[in-house]
Design a protein around this nucleic acid. Sequence first.
DNA 1: ATTTATGCAAATCATTTGCACATAG
DNA 2: CTATGTGCAAATGATTTGCATAAAT
Lengths: 125, 125
Amino acid sequence: MENRNTVQRQLILETMQTMDHPDAESVYNEVVRIHPYISKATVYRNLNLLARKGQIAKVCTSEGADKFDFRTDKHYHMRCRNCGKIFDAPLPPAEDLLEKMGDTNGFCIENFMIEFVGLCADCKK
Amino acid sequence: MENRNTVQRQLILETMQTMDHPDAESVYNEVVRIHPYISKATVYRNLNLLARKGQIAKVCTSEGADKFDFRTDKHYHMRCRNCGKIFDAPLPPAEDLLEKMGDTNGFCIENFMIEFVGLCADCKK
DNA sequence: ATTTATGCAAATCATTTGCACATAG
DNA sequence: CTATGTGCAAATGATTTGCATAAAT
């Protein structure tokens, strides 16, 4: 299970560094301009692989296509219910939430996410 | 836009009261036993309508099919990453999160959700 | 009588998968 | 050389939609 260094994978990773919470489709649209014969399946496969490797993060929101994030540190997001765009939430890491939890009846928490939903500045107009 | 009182809608609402965070498919499987000719589209339409009316809540998770909840008060959920089941999180309403937020750059927050992800007691075995 | 709702099938959207061929190591 | 990756098209899964018919008010 060695990963090889393909031009497609490299390109997708580089492109991710320049984009703000894109979905797979947007990454494809960007990347296809440089590598015209790349397929969408390759983009999906590589975004997922890079996320598994920890080089980017997958942001599963509660509505719309999954987004990808070049930031891999713990933080939270705001999602515009109108245009679907994702923004970073200005909230410091809230690990203390876990301490406030009571008895989880044997449920073992590994991770948590906070999603703020509302209207972004543009859509508010 | 008056809502009519159909036997299907009534049955779906009653069934919801007896189920623990089911998805639309599960509600259908339950309801079809009593009303054999009901269609899945009717179940989807009515679950969405009941949620819009506030009689149940729609729980959009970050993976898997949407779930529905007869509890309509503010609370949070734990999702098992293995079986997908949803459990109520033993966390008191955390409205103070909003106060801890900094400058949102014009993003207007209307709502927020917290999702804990992990392994439920059954899947841990 | 009029409008809302239903059942069915087809459409949609995001994503994944099978497979033959290409390529990295 | 041989395992991993790619491109394509088809499959998938959840959900929605168009439309003719049925039921509620």
